[in-house]
Design a protein around this nucleic acid. Structure first.
Lengths: 178, 178
DNA sequence: ATCAGCATGTAAGGCGTTACATGATTCA
DNA sequence: TGAATCATGTAACGCCTTACATGCTGAT
């Protein structure tokens, strides 16, 4: 019930590094953030508006180069404090919604072939994502000296570690089903 | 927009094995299902009511042994068909919401000690869950001959594989931060 | 006697998605 | 000229959580 919108923290976190537009924020979420959080325009713009009302972010004069309106947001001191307080708070909910696993868990109602196909679809997606993560990793390792990059690096490592575990599991699963 | 309530599939899936009450369903979700899906009473009871209206589940006479009302639900032929169609459908959304990772990703705004503490909290939770999974695994290996148990077994293996990867990552992360 | 667990359900309200509406710029 | 991308925002609607309301049974 208490306001607990995590998208606010994603936005504040991104703005703690750079001034950004809502559109920029969306792009970053679809990039490296997407491995542990998601967000649509329909959640980003309203959140941005409310954060501004609260005084956690402020508008910089937009409309420099061509294009349309374009509103560049910047984090305020209050916004930084809210972000820090959230990072310090040990409570964290790690919610997984694995529809693939669920389909497998209840796979008994269908055929073995269907189960194998579901594993295959999952595996293809993971392989594609793993490639992306490995590119991120190679790029970041060239700039690891910069303080903030360490944290980004750790999340990449997390993704790689878990995705490799998924692939190992896909192989095991195939053997068990055979 | 189109009705897409996955909790319906959890319920139908569980009922495809046994007749259950809403309370029983909740217990099972909090048990082995919780590693890939969650659900509260506030979502289970209304879903059950709607599934009944649609003809996917039906009420068995309740109130056998003492206790209160107690409504036992059973899956219908139509419910089984809906469940099978969903299992066959290759589309699956695997949505992760890792607040721990997000806190780490934006950890640069706080101290290294805070980041390490967040990793520690995560690790403790994973270790506890891993123990539970290993108990499940030992139990299921005694009854692997039964057809449906194979699918359950695979989800347990998935949990163990990924949780071990998380623990490996925790150790790596500590080294990187040191 | 009291507390935990069994058991069902509703109400309020937050969160988020999808689809829609609008319009400019850049590049082939 | 037309498509893709940049860019912001709203409206409808669905889904879910939390808190509340109610009441029985069995164990300590």
């Amino acid at each position: 019930m208490a306001k607990d919108r995590k998208i606010d923290m994603v936005i504040l976190g991104l703005l703690s590094h750079d001034d950004l537009t809502g559109y920029d924020i969306k792009k970053q979420i679809d990039g490296s953030i997407r491995f542990f959080w998601k967000g649509s325009f329909g959640s980003i713009y309203p959140a941005l508006a409310e954060l501004e009302k609260q005084g956690s972010v402020r508008r910089l004069k937009g409309n420099d180069s061509g294009g349309r309106e374009k509103i560049i947001y910047s984090i305020t001191g209050q916004g930084k404090e809210i972000l820090r307080a959230w990072v310090r708070d040990e409570k964290a909910s790690n919610d997984l919604k694995y529809e693939t696993l669920m389909k497998l868990f209840f796979g008994g109602v269908e055929s073995k072939e269907t189960a194998l196909r579901n594993i295959e679809v999952f595996e293809e997606q993971i392989k594609a994502d793993l490639k992306v993560l490995q590119v991120y990793k190679a790029n970041i390792e060239k700039a690891l000296d910069e303080e903030d990059h360490v944290y980004f690096y750790l999340t990449i490592l997390f993704g790689i570690e878990t995705y490799e575990a998924y692939l190992k599991w896909c192989n095991k699963a195939r053997k068990v089903l055979a």
